[in-house]
Simulated assay, not measured.
Amino acid sequence: MDEGAFGRAAQERAIAEVEVEMARLCELLAEGLAMGVDGGREMVGGAMSEFLVEFFGLVRAEGPRPGVREVITLPLLVHGAETGAPGPAMPVAVLHLLWWASARHLDDLTSAGAPAPAGAAAGGRVLTALAVGGQLPGRLIAGMPVGAAVRAALADELSRAWVDAVDGRLRVLAERAPNATCESVLRGYEGRTGAPYAMAAASAARLAGADDHRVAGWRAYGRAFGVLCRLADDRRDLVSGRHEGLAAGTATHLLVHLLAGLPPARRREALALHASARHSASARAEMAAWMLDEEVAESHAASVAPLAGRAHGLLDMLGGDPGCVRELHRAVEGTVGHLPGLPLAAA
């Protein structure tokens, strides 16, 4: 496989194919849930279509949101690294996208800073998220033309991801900035974001016929890559001015790193500002400026550089099809590019 065989153009085609498959699966689920009642079927199908478009921005004129490309292409590239053919992992790419559509929607509903819908509106959104994240992946796995052992392994990877991610999300919800450490935050990230990427990579390897040792290696790579994606998302949230993490009072890794480097008086000042940021736009802007300070960014980059080195190192150890492995290295570098001060080359 040459270097350009799964380049940007091929990835765009893969994303378009995944969108078509998502629409087909939503139609099937709508039919099943509504039990043939036209009004109910329209409601379910419409709710899911609105849900997926709202979250992922799957509108061709705008292109997919940041991160969607990685969600879709990661399992394709892992399968390609194992076999030279990315295409057969398309069902895993769809499964991964469905997982994120559901999990991030539930994330929004449980976020401390999000407006809480009430009554039927809240119930409808929760049920839609559960259908998208639970029933559609189950249907997809059940319908795959693979042996029973592979099907069971894929279901196990999906279950593992949900359990680990829920644990990570609960850690994030419970952790408060004054008591958090960089290590405890990373443990939460390993579940919240690392687990689904680990699932996608390991599932693609399972589908490719990899042995348990290589599957474990790909799972570790996916987890490391997912943590880097979470770190990049934290910074994008600040740079964009959305400040969703500050509004939710989240103890992000960057925030905790900043606090750890401050003398006691400045730390107390920063904690008071962070508490005010939940209710004040001006406090959020001031807190963001502290966190985006050039010196803070550089020291933070140095603290997380080993995570990028680990992802690159796992790829070097696993090897495989050169073109796909290069693209996986580039995925790490593209994510690291959102964290100023981190080296872009493999360690």
Score class of each variant (00 low, 15 high):
Leu255Asn: 08
Ala248Lys: 06
Val256Thr: 13
Leu140Asp: 04
Glu27Ile: 10
Val44Asn: 00
Arg223Cys: 09
Arg171Ser: 07
Val44Leu: 06
Ala208Phe: 15
Phe51Lys: 02
Ala283Gly: 08
Ala305Tyr: 03
His274Trp: 15
Gly245Glu: 11
Ala201Leu: 05
Tyr221Lys: 01
Gly119Trp: 00
Ala277Pro: 09
Gly7Ser: 01
Leu314Asp: 02
Cys26Thr: 05
Val94Thr: 05
Leu273Thr: 03
Ala148Leu: 14
Val132Leu: 15
Val336Gly: 06
Pro178Asn: 10
Gly341Ser: 11
Ala285His: 03
Leu258Asp: 06
Thr73Lys: 07
Leu52Asp: 00
Pro66Asp: 11
Ala208Met: 15
Leu314Pro: 04
Thr83Val: 04
Val53His: 14
Asp156Val: 11
Ala118Tyr: 10
Ala210Lys: 12
Ala165Gly: 00
Pro117Met: 03
Ala270Gln: 06
Pro322Thr: 14
Arg69Phe: 03
Arg125Ile: 09
Pro322Arg: 07
Val126Pro: 13
Asp237Phe: 11
Gly147Ser: 08
Leu292Glu: 02
Arg41Asn: 05
Cys229Val: 07
Ala302Cys: 14
Gly309Leu: 00
Glu27Asp: 05
Arg326Ser: 06
Leu106Arg: 07
Ala85Trp: 07
Gln11Ile: 08
Asp38Met: 14
Arg13Val: 01
Ala200Leu: 07
Ala118Trp: 11
Gly209Cys: 06
Met199Gln: 15
Ala180Asp: 12
Thr181Arg: 00
Phe55Trp: 03
Val59Arg: 12
Ser299Asn: 15
Leu258Ser: 08
Ala311Trp: 01
Val20Ile: 02
Pro115Lys: 01
Thr252Tyr: 09
Glu62Gly: 04
Leu207Val: 07
Gly67Met: 08
Gly4Cys: 00
Ala288Val: 03
Thr128Glu: 04
Thr83Arg: 13
Gly63Leu: 13
Gly124Ala: 00
Ala270Phe: 05
Phe55Gln: 08
Gly40Met: 11
Leu127Gln: 08
Arg69Gln: 04
Leu259Ser: 05
Leu25Tyr: 14
Val92Cys: 12
Glu286Asp: 13
Pro88Arg: 14
Glu157Trp: 06
His329Ser: 00
Glu190Trp: 05
Pro66Asn: 06
Arg192Met: 15
Gly80Asn: 05
Arg268Cys: 00
Leu228Pro: 04
Ala251Thr: 01
Arg266Cys: 03
Pro75Cys: 05
Leu74Asp: 10
Val304Leu: 04
Pro117Lys: 01
Ala311Asn: 09
Asp293Gln: 08
Pro264Arg: 01
Gly261His: 02
Ala149Thr: 12
Arg104Cys: 10
Ala297Glu: 10
Arg236Glu: 14
Ala224Arg: 10
Ala297Gly: 11
